[in-house]
């Protein structure tokens, strides 16, 4: 499949995301924030970083980048979209996903290997995992606290829209330990930790993150 990775001014993890997409067996298409078309891609990854310097709110300016109009449109038609870290913040600001990400409750940047439980293995991006599977990938964020009102949290839990949950210590004050969520259709996934940094044994904590990049193929051939 052709997977687009968007680079915003201030994106950091676009190169790693592109590499992960390739290792996952796909063709990468580099997309630029100022693009008005998605160049025929089948799916899009919004990578981590500090797009537009995190000015105003994380992801708030990126949401209005020309390429996001196309991404929001395509996501509405069912195109798989994965937002990692800053990408997750952009998805929330774009209202493709509910809730918001706020500053870590302990007020410090956190960077560590993080254990997660995959709670929903039926999304476009997590079908390569088993439900309940525990994985370890890198977590690095300053504003990774997932918040939503109680009614929305209950809805997310009740409808199985929580994709991944933090195990061990809650690293950033995310409500109900939520590390990632999806939309009703399961094509849009936002995740605070970084699976793209865990796709090769040589670097990082292992290859537990690879499933996020092989799931699309698994879904396509299922």
């Amino acid at each position: 499949m052709k997977i687009g990775v968007v680079t915003f001014p201030g994106s950091l993890d676009d190169a790693d995301a592109q590499r992960a997409v390739r290792i996952g067996g796909h063709e990468v298409v580099a997309l630029w924030h100022g693009d008005h078309d998605l160049r025929g891609v089948d799916a899009v990854v919004l990578p981590g970083g500090f797009s537009y310097g995190d000015y105003l709110r994380c992801g708030a300016i990126s949401r209005f980048a020309p390429v996001m109009t196309e991404v929001v449109d395509a996501a509405g038609r069912g195109m798989p979209v994965l937002g990692i870290c800053n990408g997750f913040q952009i998805l929330c600001e774009s209202h493709l996903l509910p809730g918001a990400l706020i500053r870590n409750d302990h007020r410090r940047f956190v960077c560590r290997d993080q254990r997660l439980r995959i709670e929903n293995a039926s999304t476009a991006w997590t079908s390569a995992y088993d439900e309940g599977e525990e994985i370890t990938v890198v977590l690095k964020n300053g504003e990774g606290g997932f918040v939503a009102d109680e009614a929305m949290l209950d809805r997310l839990e009740g409808e199985g829209l929580v994709v991944a949950r933090y195990l061990d210590d809650n690293p950033n004050g995310s409500l109900r330990g939520i590390a990632g969520i999806t939309n009703e259709r399961g094509n849009v996934v936002g995740l605070m930790p970084h699976p793209e940094h865990a796709v090769e044994a040589l670097t990082g904590s292992g290859t537990d993150g690879l499933g996020f990049f092989t799931s699309l193929a698994a879904a396509a051939f299922a």
Partner: peptide, 13 residues
């Protein structure tokens, strides 16, 4: 302003 029910780590600092 952050909503009253939303944690405000900066204010806490």
């Amino acid at each position: 302003m952050p909503k009253p029910e939303i944690l405000d780590p900066q204010g806490k600092a």
